[in-house]
Design a protein around this nucleic acid. Structure first.
Lengths: 145, 145
DNA sequence: CTGGTTGCAAAATTTTTGCACACTC
DNA sequence: GAGTGTGCAAAAATTTTGCAACCAG
């Protein structure tokens, strides 16, 4: 679904003054196609090793940085401490993550505004944003019933 | 509030067969007193340098590992990629994090069960658990109005 | 006593940088 | 062209480990 179409991502890069290079396209495509959190090393391994287009690990790190800045990638820590990234859309959204295979799906479901207000009342914080992740088993990983 | 009382934590350690050492006590106390996410280095710096009780960085890492296992510490990735830990209670809860000073407060507010069910219907995942964090300004960091 | 823990220092990993060259705009 | 982005390899950090000595239970 939509593989190879990087127009949106490319537009985001340009809009923020970043240049669109072959490496960035490849890295974005690989991260997007992965559909799950990837460490820099895993992502590097997923890159096409084609012809005369070597991509260095440095570029992976540098691009991941850019993507996180654009809101196109989300950073997280692996249990081992390594940083890993997930491709995602820049609009507000949440995730369901499969605890078995690691697949991630974006969802729109969002907690009620009232919840944030309750938190404000209880803590004297002024809530500005939030993150929410669901964990469970995807259809493929769940034994058929 | 409650400084120095590590009974609960100590009990958790014992219950799981871990031994209670002076280093672990010190590290738990420091992490708890910090009240915010700390990288291994930051936590190491916070440890009391008293008398003949040297604590090595290795122990900080090792203990952090144990605490995460017990559910007494939560791991996260710093924007720089370093792993950082937050002291927290092992029961289900969420956090409000001050975007200015980094202070963290635990909260009970939790999204409605209905939300999880909506996610299940929309994605074919079977939701088992979730995480939720609120970000905003705490009373101290917010300009008085 | 017994075996989990620790310190130390070395090793393994992960991430960042300096620089000359390449490529985008 | 002007200046950003890249590869490479070296450097900086971070995190993990081996092992003898220590200490909690």
């Amino acid at each position: 679904m939509g593989e190879g179409r990087l127009q949106d991502e490319v537009a985001h890069l340009r809009a923020r003054g970043y240049r669109v290079t072959a490496q960035r396209r490849a890295i974005i495509a690989a991260l997007r196609e992965a559909g799950r959190y990837c460490t820099a090393a895993q992502l590097f391994a997923r890159l096409p090793v084609r012809q005369g287009d070597p991509i260095s690990v440095s570029s992976v790190y540098r691009t991941l940085e850019v993507l996180a800045d654009l809101g196109l990638a989300e950073r997280r820590a692996e249990p081992t401490g390594e940083a890993s990234f997930l491709y995602c859309s820049p609009r507000h959204h949440h995730h369901v993550i499969c605890t078995a295979c690691g697949a991630v799906r974006e969802i729109d479901a969002c907690p009620d505004e009232e919840l944030a207000r309750r938190v404000e009342r209880a803590t004297d914080f002024r809530v500005e944003r939030h993150t929410l992740d669901f964990y469970g088993r995807c259809g493929d990983c769940r034994p058929r019933e």
